[in-house]
């Protein structure tokens, strides 16, 4: 982990944990559910070559203090407090999956704080999606069993969405998920309640939508999201799956860096 430095920022919720690398224009990276800054472990030193890359543990995840309640608006408010604590007036935001939803809310609620927006594998959530998500079974929540079988179930549920031959990535996922205990589903639930159609119109920052062609849930929604943003650019990473940031860090950083200049 060359050059990654860790820190805590004070907020009304308590301490917010982050990892950063590099100097220059600040870029804040927001992870998916149920991950942490570790989702950006490969990206940080690469993006850190040209920017000040900061991966935050979303409030309620990793080592960050929990919000009063889980919800996209609460996560976004914590991001803004985080920016205040670090003295960052204006940043670019990168969000992957849930992280992208949070980034949208930050950009909608405080447009003056957001330079550019990169939304990677970010879902489009409207009334029809909210209804569909309400009846979906839990994505990551598995009841604990005395013999540890729940750990295997947690692993296997994600396995189909991960590249073959990368148990290290599944290990990192499981490690992050275990920290959350029963709250592991909270981020997914938060996305499923978000009224994106009411907020998207307030996003003025130039946006780039990244689609991972082998992410079966996110990819089909790429057009639904990009077409509703103002002049959003779209880039597709072929063969990218759910852990896009870890598997395709070099390509993603190339795309992001090109967009941010």
């Amino acid at each position: 982990m060359t050059g990654i430095r860790f820190g805590y920022a004070d907020s009304s919720l308590g301490q917010l944990h982050y990892a950063e690398c590099g100097t220059g224009e600040p870029v804040v990276l927001l992870h998916q559910t149920p991950r942490s800054w570790d989702e950006y472990r490969e990206v940080l030193p690469l993006l850190g070559a040209t920017h000040r890359a900061i991966a935050m543990d979303t409030a309620g995840f990793g080592r960050s203090a929990p919000p009063a309640e889980h919800g996209i608006e609460h996560y976004a408010a914590a991001v803004l407090e985080f920016l205040d604590a670090l003295g960052l007036d204006r940043v670019s935001l990168v969000g992957h999956h849930t992280g992208g939803v949070v980034a949208i809310e930050v950009a909608a609620s405080a447009p003056e704080r957001v330079e550019r927006l990169v939304l990677s594998s970010t879902p489009w959530v409207d009334a029809a999606s909210r209804e569909a998500r309400a009846t979906r079974p839990p994505i990551d929540h598995v009841p604990v069993s005395e013999d540890g079988e729940h750990l295997a179930t947690l692993w296997r549920r994600r396995q189909a969405f991960y590249p073959k031959g990368r148990p290290d990535l599944l290990t990192r996922f499981v490690r992050d998920a275990l920290v959350l205990g029963d709250d592991v589903e909270a981020g997914h639930h938060a996305v499923g309640q978000y009224r994106m159609e009411e907020r998207i119109g307030k996003v003025s920052a130039p946006a780039l939508c990244i689609g991972a062609s082998a992410d079966p849930h996110a990819f089909p929604q790429l057009g639904a999201l990009s077409s509703r943003l103002n002049n959003a650019k779209v880039v597709i990473v072929e063969g990218g799956m759910v852990p896009l940031m870890e598997e395709h860090a070099e390509e993603v950083v190339r795309v992001i860096a090109r967009f941010l200049t």
Partner: peptide, 15 residues
């Protein structure tokens, strides 16, 4: 199916 999805999405969304 995958080829059709990816090529159509790319053609539709990229400039």
């Amino acid at each position: 199916m995958q080829r059709l999805k990816t090529s159509t999405t790319a053609a539709s969304l990229e400039d």
